[in-house]
């Protein structure tokens, strides 16, 4: 066999084979092509990527798919920033981006709240809750067994003097913790909120005082002192109207129980 043939035969064989295989693959990929909407990838890249599951979908990529197909709406995602949501709204051709919110723990008790019993054993808040409605004397007091801290995908909750507190600089408002609190103490407020009531007990002031030093005693000083009438009083607790609140801080300073708290942002 001549030298020329020794080069040409392998070359022809290899090229020929590669050509045959590439033609087969090309035919197959046309025949079994999967149509992917290019919008889905664009939207997915803009979402926060937290994969927290608060929207009810398996993750950000499933949510992006649902968004593009019209099965989901943007307000159900709280973890994505406002700017990114506006971008996504442009891609989707809608302008409903939902209100941005903050997540807070509406309890200030912790170590200042008396214990009904001392819990020793396995578990988290949910297991303590099963035992006579929690170890705290307050029927809605934060148990402080860190269920929300363990569930938070962003490590944005910490224990502060025995009760949970949201670290606002780390929180992305996904709201996973909200459904895990057996006392329903974690609440979502509009992002306008600067001050909030850090007590959820609907008991009368005297009773609250008997078991918790930090609870709302129902004195109504905050309601009386608010110049904007932004505070009302319902079920033995003051209620903020954040549309009226100008964040002057009078209520925060005057509260004798110090259960009106300021967001640390």
């Amino acid at each position: 066999m001549s030298v020329a043939l020794q080069i040409i035969i392998p070359l022809a064989l290899l090229t020929g084979l590669a050509l045959v295989f590439s033609i087969i693959i090309a035919i197959f990929s046309k025949k079994f092509a999967v149509e992917v909407n290019p919008k889905i990838e664009l939207v997915e890249n803009l979402l926060s990527g937290a994969n927290c599951g608060a929207c009810g979908y398996a993750g950000c990529s499933a949510f992006a798919k649902a968004l593009v197909e019209g099965d989901a709406t943007l307000p159900s995602c709280s973890a994505t920033s406002k700017e990114s949501k506006e971008e996504i709204a442009k891609i989707l051709g809608s302008d409903d981006i939902g209100e941005s919110t903050v997540v807070i723990v509406a309890c200030n008790g912790g170590n200042s709240c008396q214990n009904k019993y001392s819990y020793q054993g396995y578990g988290d808040c949910a297991s303590v809750e099963l035992l006579a409605g929690g170890s705290k004397a307050c029927p809605v007091g934060c148990i402080g067994m860190s269920k929300c801290i363990m569930e938070c995908p962003h490590h944005a909750i910490e224990l502060n003097e025995g009760h949970a507190m949201v670290k606002q600089e780390a929180c992305v408002q996904c709201g996973v913790c909200i459904s895990h609190c057996p006392k329903k103490l974690i609440k979502r407020l509009p992002s306008k909120a600067i001050y909030y009531i850090a007590c959820s007990s609907e008991d009368r002031g005297k009773e609250v005082r008997s078991y918790c030093k930090n609870g709302c005693i129902g004195c109504r000083i905050c309601v009386k002192n608010c110049k904007e009438n932004a505070l009302s009083f319902e079920n033995n607790l003051p209620v903020f109207d954040y549309d009226k609140c100008t964040a002057c801080g009078v209520c925060f300073e005057k509260c004798p129980a110090k259960c009106i708290k300021k967001l640390d942002i």
Partner: peptide, 13 residues
Amino acid sequence: LVIASLIQLVEII
């Protein structure tokens, strides 16, 4: 070459 092409087919399917 053969194996790589086959994988491509399997992947598509």
